[in-house]
């Protein structure tokens, strides 16, 4: 199960934080700080997995952005690693050539997309097409 998802830039600014487990405010700040410290200095030649407390962070770097997912240590690492990539592809498709600024100014859209992709810490939909179409539907409603 995904415990939380973080999008952070190299400086550690959080661009998206979604928690599927109840954490206190102060704990969330600590987690974000620690996860950033943990992934930012890792060599690109290293694994995409790193232990974090009693869990595991699966992360991937795209340009200056780190996408990190905290999952159970018994979870399938590669499946979640590709889950990150699929999410990035969806964002890329939605924003046509996504960049960090898109995510900054449209952070609310990113939350919407994420809610169509992952729910309750589990994958909800793996079809890019289904999610993009759904976003179209939602935009019409506004």
């Amino acid at each position: 199960m995904i415990r939380f998802i973080l999008l952070q830039n190299r400086q550690g600014k959080t661009r998206l934080a979604k928690y599927y487990v109840p954490l206190e405010e102060s704990e969330k700040h600590k987690v974000e700080y620690e996860v950033h410290r943990l992934v930012v200095n890792r060599d690109p030649k290293f694994t995409n997995f790193v232990e974090f407390r009693t869990h595991k962070i699966i992360y991937r770097r795209y340009a200056g952005l780190f996408f990190s997912m905290c999952v159970d240590i018994t979870d399938n690492e590669l499946a979640y690693l590709e889950c990150i990539h699929l999410f990035v592809e969806i964002l890329d498709h939605f924003f046509s050539n996504v960049c960090e600024l898109d995510l900054v100014f449209n952070f609310h859209k990113v939350y919407l997309i994420l809610d169509e992709f992952i729910l309750a810490g589990e994958l909800q939909e793996t079809s890019k097409k289904a999610i993009i179409e759904r976003m179209g539907e939602l935009e019409k409603q506004e």
């Binding site: 199960m1 009693t54 869990h55 159970d72 240590i73 018994t74 979870d75 810490g121």
Partner: peptide
């Protein structure tokens, strides 16, 4: 050492 997982492994 306890591991915390959504489902028991």
């Amino acid at each position: 050492t306890e591991i915390d997982t959504a489902e028991q492994s």
